[in-house]
Amino acid sequence: MILAFSLAVAVVFGSGVFLVIQRDLLRVVVGIVLISNSASLFIVAAGLTRGAVPIVPLPGGDGASASDPLVQAMALTALIITSSVTALLLSLIYRLYVSHDTMDIEDISVAELREAEALERKNRPEIEENPEKGPAAEELEERSR
């Protein structure tokens, strides 16, 4: 049982990490959800005991025959926290999607660089002479290769 649980935790965690290092923001969110869920799974694995429903009055009279309720409460709390943070993350990427029409983190960075340059050019006209030589342009060039 311990081996099964640790394998499950490892696979879920590993898949999560793989997704987090992707460029697509939606995948990153899914990845972090998987990582969080692997923690919940770990909690369950760490405190798993088989027994009766832990509701007073206990069937056996003492606590020995009941399963440990604290682990379940902890896993539940962790799940709630994950779900609310996921909602927040989704709204953040939605916000980015609306303004950039893409969910690719690198496209967003490039777009931001370009905006920053445009702003700087407006403030400091002397850069205007050579508009091709901004970092964004270079970045684009490099990526088109």
Binding site: T102, E106, D107
Partner: peptide, 11 residues
């Protein structure tokens, strides 16, 4: 949520 149409960003 249908695919987030991120393909357009890749060149």
């Amino acid at each position: 949520d249908v695919e987030p149409s991120s393909g357009g960003g890749r060149r």
